[in-house]
């Protein structure tokens, strides 16, 4: 009787990478619904196009790299990349913009580094930044809430028909950045884009992503260190540099927490394990770094939002953070830290 020879452990937990990816996708549902409430089918069009392009690019390059296409498409990671990119792009982004962004994210951001698990940068943020610096006009054209109807939206996305001017609106981060004469109160009253603490739509969208993020935290998909580090750093920075409600205001802490891609970044981007630091302490540092950089870019940089840039900059630092945040192993007096491997 021949018996199979298998090494321990023989028992295997139920968690799978596909499950992780599906949970992430599920956790974006509140955000998607909220976005759709404000922007109609725009976010959904983004998602459908981005996911389709992402799968297409992934399949093509896997075939070129002679890797099993079906096996790797099933892991769901490329869907997450496409989805997060779609959520970050302005609703009703033209199809070619989505194609460029996903193409860059999947091909250059992920597969050319070796595919799943090998990418040093967050692919979605890499794709986002490429189109942001290449097509700034299209990337800052956020439609005003409840303005775009479906037909016009489809025509815009697929045939490049321009929206009427009234339909597009500067984001609140943008508005705050270019404002130099109005007090906060005056600014808030000047545009329908503003809501209670931040943007009329952005504060609700951010809260929806926060909800999804808390669900993932509850599911123990990631530890609290990176998201809390980022939000706390952003909060503290905006509190430290909050110079009141005058015309030179940088915005209140709550404004920053509920504007732009803050919550999407905190729970869906900063928590990307592949491109983040790996130890618990490292992730805390990584999150704090992202939070600080977001505020610096928002307050003093050239772009209204800085999540993507902040994440990419911290991606660069992640390996170094890993070298310096190794935990103390059982039975050792101190943790071994630093680049050097020798004793």
């Amino acid at each position: 009787m021949t018996l199979p020879r298998i090494t321990s452990p023989h028992a295997k937990g139920a968690n799978r990478t596909q499950r992780v990816m599906l949970l992430v996708i599920a956790a974006t549902v509140p955000g998607i619904l909220t976005l759709s409430y404000f922007f109609g089918i725009g976010p959904l069009l983004n998602i459908v196009l981005a996911c389709a392009f992402a799968l297409l690019f992934e399949a093509a390059i896997l075939a070129l790299r002679k890797r099993p296409v079906g096996f790797f498409l099933k892991d769901g990671s490329v869907l997450v990349t496409g989805l997060l990119l779609a959520l970050a792009l302005p609703p009703y982004s033209p199809w070619w913009l989505i194609a460029v962004a996903t193409g860059f994210a999947v091909v250059f951001g992920k597969q050319l580094f070796g595919g799943l698990g090998q990418n040093p940068f967050n692919p979605a943020m890499l794709g986002y930044v490429v189109v942001l610096v290449s097509f700034p006009v299209d990337m800052t054209a956020w439609p005003a809430a409840h303005s775009v109807d479906a037909i016009a939206g489809l025509q815009h996305v697929f045939f490049g028909q321009a929206f009427p001017d009234a339909w597009s609106q500067a984001t609140v981060l943008d508005a705050l950045k270019i404002n130099s004469s109005l007090t906060i109160e005056e600014l808030w009253n000047s545009s329908s884009a503003f809501g209670v603490f931040a943007g009329y739509s952005s504060e609700w969208v951010n809260l929806a992503f926060l909800l999804g993020g808390l669900f993932l935290l509850h599911k123990k998909l990631f530890s609290w260190h990176a998201p809390l580090g980022m939000l706390a750093a952003l909060f503290i920075m905006s509190l430290l540099f909050w110079n009141g409600n005058g015309s030179d205001s940088q915005g209140s802490p709550l404004f920053h927490l509920l504007s732009g891609a803050t919550m999407l970044g905190a729970f869906f981007i900063v928590t990307d394990p592949v491109s983040s630091a790996t130890s618990v302490q490292g992730r805390l540092i990584f999150g704090i770094g992202v939070g600080v950089l977001i505020y610096i870019i928002r307050a003093w940089g050239g772009y209204p939002d800085g999540v993507a840039f902040a994440v990419l900059l911290m991606n660069l630092c992640a390996p170094t953070i890993d070298y310096f945040t190794r935990p103390r192993t059982y039975g050792h007096k101190a943790a071994k830290r630093g680049f050097k491997a020798g004793e």
């Binding site: 298998i6 028992a11 892991d75 799943l116 698990g117 394990p273 983040s276 790996t278 059982y330 039975g331």
Partner: peptide, 29 residues
């Protein structure tokens, strides 16, 4: 009872291993 494990995927550095390691190592590294 003890099924053969599914084919291994690349490590995504989720860090679950480091969380459960009783020796406080970094298994992913």
């Amino acid at each position: 009872e003890l099924p053969a494990p599914p084919a291994a995927l690349p490590c995504i550095r989720c860090g679950d291993c480091a969380e459960v390691c009783p020796a406080n190592l970094l298994p992913q590294q």
